[in-house]
């Protein structure tokens, strides 16, 4: 464990808690893409299959449980909570996210580190996580302006992956044989997807204006 990875995990945790807090307190999911949340629940479900088989550390197990519970409860809130579901704008959240699942799965079948069920599911979860934010970014473009909690959510999500890239660089130089090209490339693609959002988020923060995304 290094400081970059710990900071990354904490940032990731913060992004999920910010979202849960928003939905739970103001009982609204306006501006949140259910599709992205469903993709994230699938990412965690397919990545943490080893939750009960490989014990790595208490921290690892605890964080996996938190991510699983929080991502599925966010999906539950938006889908089934009698008040929150009313604020879900399904006419705007129209990204066909199932078109993301299949290519990621096929790619995981072809490009992986080991052709085993667990490894393929793990690789699938990596590719899926890289594109999971797309429905949310499309929704933000559509709804033009975003409230600051959603902006913070996407910002924290992008920041966590950027911190992970620093973690991979650190581990590459400090641990012999630590090479995971698949993880590195998919993590880089994921961060690049956030890049333009980051640019507009930073501009709005610097000029102290409401975040507006160009259509």
């Amino acid at each position: 464990m290094n400081i970059f990875r710990l900071a990354g995990d904490m940032t990731h945790l913060a992004s999920v808690l910010v979202l849960l807090l928003k939905i739970h307190t103001i009982k609204s999911c306006a501006g949140i893409s259910l599709k992205t949340q469903e993709l994230y629940a699938l990412v965690f479900a397919t990545r943490y299959l080893d939750l009960f088989t490989d014990y790595i550390s208490l921290y690892n197990t605890l964080m996996k449980l938190i991510f699983l519970v929080s991502s599925f409860s966010i999906v539950w809130y938006i889908r089934h909570h009698k008040i929150v579901r009313r604020s879900y704008d399904k006419d705007q959240d129209t990204f066909r996210h199932y078109f993301l699942v299949l290519p990621c799965f096929l790619l995981a079948l072809v490009i992986n580190e080991k052709f085993t069920v667990k490894e393929i599911m793990w690789t699938f979860s990596l590719y899926l996580e890289a594109v999971a934010i797309l429905p949310q970014l499309v929704l933000l473009q559509r709804t033009r302006n975003i409230d600051n909690l959603t902006g913070q959510y996407v910002f924290l999500l992008g920041a966590y992956r950027s911190l992970y890239i620093l973690n991979w660089i650190y581990r590459y130089f400090t641990e012999p044989h630590y090479v995971h090209w698949i993880t590195w490339i998919s993590g880089l693609v994921q961060t690049l997807l956030y890049a333009d959002f980051f640019y507009y988020y930073f501009q709005s923060w610097k000029n102290n204006v409401k975040l507006e995304l160009p259509a």
């Binding site: 990731h12 080893d50 490989d54 790595i56 964080m63 996996k64 991510f67 580190e113 793990w122 973690n167």
Partner: peptide, 10 residues
């Protein structure tokens, strides 16, 4: 032997 590299990251 290539030590079974379990994924230790979240």
């Amino acid at each position: 032997t290539t030590q079974e590299q379990t994924h230790d990251e979240l």
